[in-house]
Amino acid sequence: MCAWKAGRLHSRTVLYGYARKARVFMVIIAANSADQTFGVDGALAVNSRSSGSAMCNGSFF
């Protein structure tokens, strides 16, 4: 917003920002599709936040 008021907002900069956001969104979509395809039910995210024993007893938090 400040760049727009100061007149420093360039279309190329905005284009790169939107392209970067689109790439991140595509990675999220691909990860979700892979998660659903392989049926791991978010095991990578669960394992990175907690120990393996939390998955065995059914309590994630």
Results as ranks from 00 to 15, higher is better:
residue 55 M to G: 06
residue 35 D to W: 01
residue 16 Y to A: 07
residue 27 V to Q: 09
residue 21 K to W: 06
residue 57 N to F: 02
residue 10 H to N: 05
residue 52 G to N: 10
residue 25 F to I: 06
residue 23 R to D: 01
residue 58 G to P: 04
residue 53 S to Q: 10
residue 57 N to C: 13
residue 57 N to I: 04
residue 40 V to C: 04
residue 32 N to R: 11
residue 44 L to N: 15
residue 59 S to D: 11
residue 36 Q to E: 06
residue 61 F to P: 01
residue 46 V to N: 00
residue 3 A to M: 05
residue 57 N to H: 13
residue 26 M to Y: 11
residue 30 A to P: 01
residue 25 F to Q: 15
residue 28 I to N: 13
residue 17 G to F: 02
residue 60 F to N: 07
residue 19 A to M: 04
residue 33 S to T: 08
residue 57 N to L: 03
residue 48 S to Y: 06
residue 2 C to F: 13
residue 48 S to L: 11
residue 3 A to K: 06
residue 21 K to Y: 02
residue 10 H to Y: 05
residue 2 C to I: 06
residue 30 A to N: 04
residue 12 R to L: 12
residue 30 A to L: 05
residue 5 K to C: 04
residue 46 V to M: 10
residue 19 A to F: 02
residue 28 I to Q: 11
residue 47 N to M: 14
residue 4 W to L: 14
residue 2 C to V: 09
residue 2 C to M: 14
residue 39 G to A: 12
residue 46 V to Y: 00
residue 28 I to S: 09
residue 49 R to L: 12
residue 50 S to A: 12
residue 1 M to A: 05
residue 21 K to A: 13
residue 9 L to M: 12
residue 41 D to V: 05
residue 32 N to M: 08
residue 42 G to N: 04
residue 44 L to W: 12
residue 41 D to C: 12
residue 25 F to H: 09
residue 39 G to H: 02
residue 20 R to Q: 07
residue 47 N to H: 08
residue 3 A to P: 04
residue 6 A to G: 02
residue 32 N to V: 05
residue 17 G to E: 09
residue 61 F to Y: 15
residue 21 K to L: 02
residue 35 D to T: 01
residue 49 R to Y: 09
residue 53 S to N: 11
residue 36 Q to K: 15
residue 33 S to A: 14
residue 45 A to V: 13
residue 59 S to W: 01
residue 4 W to H: 08
residue 6 A to D: 07
residue 57 N to A: 03
residue 12 R to K: 15
residue 28 I to K: 14
residue 51 S to I: 04
residue 42 G to H: 03
residue 23 R to C: 06
residue 26 M to P: 00
residue 25 F to T: 01
residue 43 A to H: 10
residue 41 D to F: 10
residue 48 S to G: 06
residue 45 A to L: 14
residue 48 S to H: 09
residue 52 G to T: 10
residue 21 K to T: 05
residue 5 K to T: 00
residue 53 S to E: 02
residue 9 L to N: 05
residue 16 Y to M: 02
residue 26 M to A: 14
residue 23 R to G: 03
residue 43 A to C: 14
residue 1 M to K: 11
residue 52 G to F: 06
residue 42 G to S: 03
residue 51 S to N: 10
residue 21 K to R: 15
residue 50 S to F: 12
residue 51 S to R: 11
residue 30 A to Y: 07
residue 28 I to R: 08
residue 36 Q to C: 14
residue 8 R to Q: 09
residue 26 M to S: 14
residue 56 C to V: 13
residue 27 V to P: 00
residue 54 A to F: 01
residue 28 I to P: 00
residue 6 A to W: 14
residue 23 R to H: 09
residue 47 N to E: 04
residue 32 N to S: 13
residue 5 K to D: 03
residue 54 A to M: 08
residue 42 G to Y: 00
residue 47 N to W: 11
residue 31 A to D: 08
residue 56 C to S: 15
residue 7 G to R: 04
residue 14 V to H: 06
residue 46 V to H: 00
residue 29 I to Y: 08
residue 39 G to F: 01
